[in-house]
Design a protein around this nucleic acid. Sequence first.
DNA 1: ACAAAAGTGTTATGCATACACCCATGC
DNA 2: GCATGGGTGTATGCATAACACTTTTGT
Lengths: 233, 233
Amino acid sequence: MSAETEQHLVLAVSTVIFSLRPDPETGELTLWLPLVRRIREPFKNRWALPGGPLDNAHDLAEAANNTMQHTTQVQPRHLEQLYAFGDVDRSPEAPERVVSIVYWALVGQDEDLQVVDAENVEWHPVEEIPGPLAFDHDLIVRYAVDRLRAKVTYSPIAHAFLPEEFSLADLRRVYEAILNRALDPSNFRRQILSQGTVQDTGRRMTGTAHRPPKLYRSAPQSSRYALTIEENP
Amino acid sequence: MSAETEQHLVLAVSTVIFSLRPDPETGELTLWLPLVRRIREPFKNRWALPGGPLDNAHDLAEAANNTMQHTTQVQPRHLEQLYAFGDVDRSPEAPERVVSIVYWALVGQDEDLQVVDAENVEWHPVEEIPGPLAFDHDLIVRYAVDRLRAKVTYSPIAHAFLPEEFSLADLRRVYEAILNRALDPSNFRRQILSQGTVQDTGRRMTGTAHRPPKLYRSAPQSSRYALTIEENP
DNA sequence: ACAAAAGTGTTATGCATACACCCATGC
DNA sequence: GCATGGGTGTATGCATAACACTTTTGT
């Protein structure tokens, strides 16, 4: 009656890891994510999300965290379950049925940039994914981007992309990169300040070309749950 | 390297099934859900969510659907993935690690009331769950209720509780039952009508004690996805 | 002085809320 | 007629958006 004898399936955990990097051409900040080139069948040589079979010793989120370590050598600033994908025919070329529990994560701008990528890992802008990806990973990436865009509008996760202290213009550029549209600086300022999600450090950024902006830090969260459960409309 | 030899875990699908029923004392419409009394260890004799191990031949949502059939003999009007629960220690008394992918579902008021429950199945008001439930099912129920309450405010899922044609007062009572608070009838009316989620049938309800209300039906949806991915703030 | 970004103030608009009021039906 | 729920109209407050304007720095 156990899974070993009856289910014949693999439970895997994959993670969509987001980072902000400047576009190599325009220089504008955009969303990027790491993909791993598969070295085995099925989908050999295709790009895929980082991940692997669930180790029995780890929680689901731990597994996602470990995947991040192996792929990017950095800790996520935000980690959240996205969805469980398990249709019978989602990996027709695989020898066994694969059920994937997918997480998405944010890594900070500062940490991320000075890190050497692992073997077979390459970062790509989310708008230029070298598809088709392995399995149903194109679909998963789309879901993850949508979730991120939806969540940034009502949750202070954007802070996860920034260092400890930041200006409101920094924060606004993060929002603009995620949402892919310009935001009015003055209204953005008011919105953020009225939310109470940032605290004035009392200090200002030095060495700027013009008027030095105030520095803020993100305010401690008052989350209702230890876990986070999320959605896309 | 396969899951059978290394993972030693069971992948289960459980479903939180919601229905609206009048409170036996006050007569007010409230949220109910069915629980199954466990007849085996672990957690023998405790109440648990309906569900079971994932059959290899079925998609995840299909498995949730089948669970509903066995438990309530009716089709869900709405079925949506809630979350995957898979911490290593979430079922310490079980012989193997269990990862549960949990769905939640809505069944209509009309269908539901005339149905005989299966063996060991009993419906309970969500505010009077006979806890503690088996495994971490108390937590899961809380998440599901929160998700339902959040989603009803920005999505027309409440229609799923009603028959084909209904008055706006019927719909309002559904909202009030889910949210557990009174809503202003006139503002509720305007909100619903402005959303365009209901269509006037041109007919009126007959046999009412007072002025006969107009009858509406729910408008066809324009959903962005075949699948639904959701969240709790 | 000037350019550029930081930061403030003002107004218009739309939406949610509260609530006064009229309508239509059974009794 | 009258009680009751169905249904309409209207004023108020609040959040958002648009944008004019002032402030502060480096060059």
